[in-house]
Amino acid sequence: MSISALKKLRFFAPGVIAALGYFILGEFTGWWSQPDELSFEDLPKILPVFVVGVIYYVTPLRDRSNRKYFERVSENIRQGLYRIYGRDDINPEDWARVRVVFFQLIDSDESLREKAKIAYFNGAIWTTVADVRIISWIYAVISLVLFVLLGNTGALLAFISFSAISLVTYPISNELTKKHMEIGDEQLTLIESTHKIRLVKKLDALHGRENTAGT
């Protein structure tokens, strides 16, 4: 999967997930249902759902939903790079600059770029699962409010269903994170075997050290 395709998926996925949640809630409550065929006249009915999707996209909700998994992957790569570098006295806050070096090495090698495509595909699923988790929780809260205020039994069933969906995403995210870390380890192995000297030179320059690549 290309970066362009990944960006498109990350943009459209929240709106699609929000739309599916909207129709699921409607089916449970009996207040609205999914149309057999979507006509131009039906678009205003679901437009607010996609607006919600766009709002979700520009808020930090996705990042917060996936933060602990993202940090595990980032830390795995950071530690792997410094293991190859041969030093362990680097401030973790330097990762923002070091990750640039990591991606420069990936972009310079065809084998690493192929691994990156696998990582992008896994990442697309990874972030989509995070979207499902947070949007399902949002619908779970909406469903619970509707049940409490209006006493609709279907809303209670919707709350249980959305909560179950959200809970299921946690072990899925864990497995996808493990997969992402495995891909990162494969990239690190390639960097160590073919680009170690370049990596050391770049990190020496980054941290203002005398070059240690030949030692």
Rank of each mutant, 00 (worst) to 15 (best):
F121K: 12
D131I: 05
S108G: 13
T169G: 10
F103M: 05
Y85K: 00
G154C: 09
S161V: 12
K179N: 08
F103E: 11
P48E: 00
P171W: 09
F50Q: 00
G21C: 14
T29M: 13
I24F: 14
L156H: 04
H180Q: 11
L9R: 10
I160Y: 05
T177F: 13
S136V: 01
E93L: 12
V16D: 01
T127S: 13
D204P: 03
Q187G: 10
P60T: 04
Y22R: 01
Q79Y: 03
I24W: 08
A19L: 06
I165K: 04
K115I: 11
S161T: 15
L206F: 07
G53C: 00
P14G: 03
L176Q: 15
I3Q: 12
K115F: 10
M1T: 10
T29S: 15
G151T: 07
Y69G: 04
D42K: 03
L199N: 02
D131T: 06
I106E: 02
Q79T: 06
M1R: 06
D94C: 08
V141T: 15
D36M: 04
Y57D: 13
S173F: 15
L206A: 13
R99M: 13
T127D: 14
G154P: 04
F28H: 14
N211G: 07
S39D: 07
I24P: 06
D36L: 06
I17W: 01
G214P: 02
D185Q: 09
I197P: 02
I3P: 00
D204L: 07
